Simulated scan of single mutants.
Amino acid sequence: MESDSPLNHPVVHFLLCVSYLFVFLATIIGNLIILLVFFSQKKVRSVPNFFLANLTVADLFVGIFCVLQNAVNFVFQGHGRWPFGKVLCYSYIYVLHFIPNVSAGILVLVSVERLIAVLRPLRVRRAFSQKVLITSSAVVWLASAVMNTPYVIASQFLEISDGNETYTICTRRHVEIYGFNLLKLVATINFIVWYAVPLVILLCIYATIGLVVSKAATITKQSANKLLPRSSWRSEASTGGVSVEKRRKVGRLAVGIVVAFAFFSLPRYVYFMWTVWRDPMAPRCLNCLQSVLQPISFLLLFFNAAVDPFLYAFLSTRFRQSIKETFHVGKVRESNIELSSRLRRKVVNSELETGYEYHTHS
């Protein structure tokens, strides 16, 4: 019975509700703040940040169109129940697959730009002109939109009556087209194109960046030791070190985002591939651990969209400063310091004047 499902255990139900609420608020608020920074601060409108802005929009769509709907589907209304109607059922399943694929494609674009920035820093602006930025981003969005259209065909909205009540569910169905199982085909292609291949590309790119940066650091140190007098080692090493450090920081933010993508997306892909390739006629156990694993895999996927703004804030000094300037945090602090210094000067001046008058009268 459904009442025996682990999802209905009070502790599990409470933890899932709190987790969904946290992910929803973090995704919406965090990504809105990042978008506000992009639009209000010109200094963050660089080539890689253009791609990161696209990633932020995709993450925001996850929060708006997926998180609460998924929570209602699995936790709030009972496992699998869908109260939002047929149209939202089809659009929800479509967006649920469409947006994560966009994030993967954008991450590849960010990483390719980072690789060129490290290998050929003078050519990166020519390679990524405004036209190239817009075109490449549009290709990712369009490719993901087209490749996920089969999910609309495979979506299924059912009305079920168990004698006591009537409820609706939103799920996927196996559709045969020209002898091919559409759901298995599109799920496998998407896993390869939008997860496995991007992950291999990203690993190769950042392995290359790591080797180049470490080699540059070694060459800089050796050159300083051979060509400069001992007294200038510190100054020149620090000068060369700035360049190497800048190149090291170039990919730090992107690496953090890629690691989050690889870690938080994998459970959902594994679980979804298992559900697609299992025997569709086999009974589903709603009272087993499987019923808890499904919403957890979704939560981890959504958490990837929630964690990106925190990565921007903690791994990028420029983003941290821009966030402070956007909300006038730094200006308020500076104004408070200036106000306190003015008050201090007034007190000192008044004391000097009082002392001068005392000496004059005496």
Rank of each mutant, 00 (worst) to 15 (best):
S129F: 05
T354A: 11
L107E: 04
F24S: 06
V270Q: 03
Y195L: 08
V258A: 09
A26C: 10
H13G: 01
A262C: 06
L183C: 10
S5T: 05
P6L: 07
H9T: 00
I28V: 15
L286H: 06
F298G: 01
R126V: 09
T27K: 03
K246D: 13
F98C: 09
S362F: 12
V23M: 07
F303C: 06
L211C: 11
L32K: 02
V112G: 02
V244G: 05
S291N: 03
S161G: 09
A26E: 09
S19H: 05
L36V: 06
S291T: 04
F319L: 01
F264W: 04
A224E: 15
F314G: 07
M281H: 14
G355C: 01
E2R: 02
T166I: 08
V112F: 07
Y271I: 03
K184W: 11
R268P: 00
E159D: 07
E351G: 02
T220R: 10
Y358L: 09
Y94G: 03
T239N: 12
S161L: 04
V244C: 09
S340F: 13
L286V: 04
P295G: 05
I99M: 12
I205Y: 11
T56P: 14
A224W: 14
T220P: 06
V108P: 01
R234F: 11
R284C: 01
M1W: 04
R268G: 07
A187G: 10
C288G: 13
I116W: 06
V259Y: 10
N181G: 13
V332R: 11
T317S: 14
L211E: 15
L339R: 12
V242P: 00
M147C: 05
V87Y: 10
F39Y: 15
A224V: 15
L68N: 12
V108G: 01
Q290I: 01
H97M: 06
K86L: 11
P309R: 01
G63C: 07
V87K: 06
V329Y: 15
V124D: 06
G63R: 01
L88W: 11
L289Q: 08
A217W: 06
L32V: 08
V67G: 06
Q321N: 14
K331H: 14
S340K: 12
V124F: 04
Q321A: 13
T275P: 00
V259N: 04
L315P: 02
V124A: 14
E338V: 00
T27V: 05
Y195G: 03
